[in-house]
Design a protein around this nucleic acid. Structure first.
Ligand SMILES: [Zn+2]
Ligand SMILES: [Zn+2]
Ligand SMILES: [Zn+2]
Ligand SMILES: [Zn+2]
Lengths: 147, 147
DNA sequence: TCTTGAAGCTATAGTTGCTAGAGTCATTAG
DNA sequence: CTAATGACTCTAGCAACTATAGCTTCAAGA
């Protein structure tokens, strides 16, 4: 049995994060020691490592919740899991597309600046007027999470 | 003079967002009508449009605050503005790099799945074990904001 | 002029995924 | 036995809004 500190170390997750996951019902309430400290077994470690890995891949916690409950039903079709992953892929692609447009615009404004005074700064000029931009990079309905 | 609704419409910013910007000191407190409603002039519209455009380009509000106060001093060197933009570009590049790694991993797991049961689902398998991943995509110290 | 509906006002809480504190209790190494 | 960790609960804070509640003001039609 592991204490919360050891569990966090083993899974690469900080202790308050584990308690937070428990609070939102992503991890089950563990056993407690005589002194009221949480005690975890191998199953909890697996589950936490799964969560950690899915978070690293950018899945939002709600999606992870669904994936976890799916993985508890091994005989079912995996279509639902694949759909979740596909949606996550789509979200990642959308974010890449948006960021790539931003990158181009930022590079343009930076290279065009002649490094003089603010009055002539291309960065300030472009920020003041979207018509000076090459692409349309307006933010759309952002459904995504993930850093 | 514009009411808050007209201002929001003109700048493409929602009304509560304008009030939020005022609350955090990004927009100055405007005049009020006899009935206590906010009234904005052309200067406020310019400022709000600047904020909106910078937000669209992913600048965090703190950076926008700095850019705005720079743009009020037209005779100064624009080096500080260019540095802010360059930092934003670096943040965007870092996020693209990370997301590109995630995209590859997600595509890999999705295409490898044979669409059977959860017990054999490659998506679930990979999420359970990072050793099955091709790249190291672990999240690093994310300093960024920006959607 | 009255009335209705849209738009404005303030203040508070919720979103996502944690992180940081305060103040207290349990465990363990020397 | 004491001191140093580590764990406990609870609350608040981050970014950048969004949503709700309950009220007042405004503009236009009947
Ligand atoms: Zn410049
Ligand atoms: Zn633009
Ligand atoms: Zn599958
Ligand atoms: Zn991995």
């Amino acid at each position: 049995m592991l204490t919360i500190g050891k569990l966090g170390e083993a899974a690469g997750v900080k202790v308050p994060t584990i308690r937070y996951y428990e609070q939102i019902g992503l991890l089950p309430e563990p056993e407690r020691s005589a002194g009221n400290q949480r005690l975890y077994g191998a199953k909890a470690l697996d589950r936490l490592a799964f969560i950690r890995h899915a978070r690293d891949l950018g899945f939002p916690l709600e999606a992870i919740r669904d994936l976890l409950s799916l993985s508890d039903r091994p005989d079912q079709s995996c279509a639902a899991a694949d759909i979740i992953a596909t949606e996550q892929l789509a979200a990642v692609k959308a974010r890449i597309a948006r960021l790539t447009a931003l990158k181009a615009e930022l590079e343009r404004m930076i290279t065009q600046c002649a490094q003089g005074t603010i009055a002539d700064c291309r960065v300030i000029e472009v920020l003041s007027d979207h018509a000076l931009c090459a692409d349309d990079h307006r933010a759309q309905t952002g459904s995504g999470a993930a850093t």
